[in-house]
Amino acid sequence: MDNENFGLAKSFSSAPVLSISPHTNFSQKEQTDIEHELNEQVGTTGEYVSEGFCFKLAPGQDQIGFMRSLKEKAPKLTDFAKGTTTLAFEFQEGVLVAVDARATMGAFISSNNVRKVIEINDFLLGTMAGGAADCMFWEKYVAMQCRVYELRNGEKPSVAMASMMLASIMRQYRGQGLSMGTMFTGSDKTGASLYYIDNDATRVKGRLFAVGSGGTFAYGVLDTNYRYDMSLDEAVNLGIRAITSATFKDSASGGVVRIYHVTNHGKWNLIHDAIDVSELHYQFEQNKGHTGRGNEGKPNKYL
């Protein structure tokens, strides 16, 4: 090879990897011992500095106490999207992800059309439960880290590794008030895989998960009908059925059903973007021979 630049474009940065990487605090090691002494004497320095982020903290010593009492201090501020039903399961053709679309603030429905599946990149998906901002921000951050990994190493990171990145972040901020319950799915060389990650830094690989207030109802439908050797059509129908049942019984879930399929060949597909659950309910009840209005059998006695 006579090309000294290994075929790279001239515009390609020849800067050392460390100086273009997002890890801007790589000189931290020299500081730690001095900082330690400093912290003993005057407390924290008031900011989180990690991996290029610099989060402003509340003044004073009791940061965790501040975060815990935010609800009384600023009503509405932390009152975002709590109820939800999200589910995902592995089957022979990959992973199926099904979610509802309701966001609530207490009893108020702030939206019935929320996107609870975060399209991290073309081979990773994350579901959203708990704090919407925490899920959105950190999963986008993982997308960035995945891209950096790809550029450095010339291959995509495995799903195990990408999920570990997110779990490590959750470990770093544990107890600081982040709220996240996500099913992290994706497809790599070994096919599709599924992880559950939450804000306690739990990271579990599994075949079937349902997360959120409607999750218990979804589990009921899923566990009775789940088989590993389902076809894609059967899996999609099961996903729709489970979400519809959950939204019927759990008032914090509702809106529309969205279905994603993660294939075994390194990408995901959007199967259904929005199916109205109130239409689905009547459809399912009519298939049973009911009206869907709950007036079968003994006539109701009013008054």
Partner: peptide
């Protein structure tokens, strides 16, 4: 989000 731990109200 940069003010996650002392949010803008």
């Amino acid at each position: 989000y940069g003010r996650r731990f002392m949010p803008y109200y």
